[in-house]
Amino acid sequence: MIQRSLRYSEQTQQYVRKSIKRIAKQLDSRPITCCKYYIHPVNIESCIKAKLLSLIQQKLDVPLQLLPDEQRILLVLRQISST
């Protein structure tokens, strides 16, 4: 799924792959199985957007007040509420 999206930097793609591997390990499954059956594409996009926002905030030296998982959840909730 990630390989299809070449518009993201390699660093961002590695971040998502690492996140998927962590999820797969928690589910005692393989990463490809998690992508195909357990992780909705919107969640992957949200993860990427949260990572990009995090990188932008780091560049601006803005302190992060939420944990990365909390930021991703907040981003998904904002997207849901705007639709």
Rank of each mutant, 00 (worst) to 15 (best):
I2H: 06
I2V: 14
S5L: 15
S5R: 05
R7Q: 10
R7D: 11
E10H: 05
E10M: 02
T12F: 00
Q13T: 06
Q14K: 11
Y15P: 02
V16A: 15
V16T: 11
R17H: 07
K18M: 03
S19G: 08
I20P: 02
K21V: 04
K21Q: 13
R22L: 14
R22W: 03
I23F: 06
A24K: 09
Q26E: 15
L27C: 04
D28F: 02
R30S: 14
P31R: 08
I32K: 13
T33A: 11
C34W: 11
C34L: 09
C35V: 04
Y37E: 10
I39L: 15
I39F: 07
H40A: 07
P41G: 07
V42T: 13
N43K: 06
N43G: 00
N43Q: 10
I44H: 05
S46Q: 04
C47K: 05
I48Q: 06
K49F: 02
K49I: 07
A50S: 15
K51T: 00
K51I: 00
L52T: 08
L53T: 08
L53A: 10
L53W: 05
L55T: 06
L55A: 12
L55V: 03
Q57R: 12
Q57I: 03
Q57P: 00
Q57N: 10
Q57A: 15
K59F: 07
L60K: 12
D61T: 06
D61L: 04
P63E: 10
L64R: 14
L64V: 01
L64E: 14
Q65G: 05
Q65S: 13
Q65T: 14
L67E: 15
D69R: 04
L74E: 12
V76S: 08
L77N: 15
R78N: 03
R78I: 01
Q79L: 01
Q79I: 00
Q79C: 01
Q79E: 12
I80F: 15
S81M: 03
S82T: 09
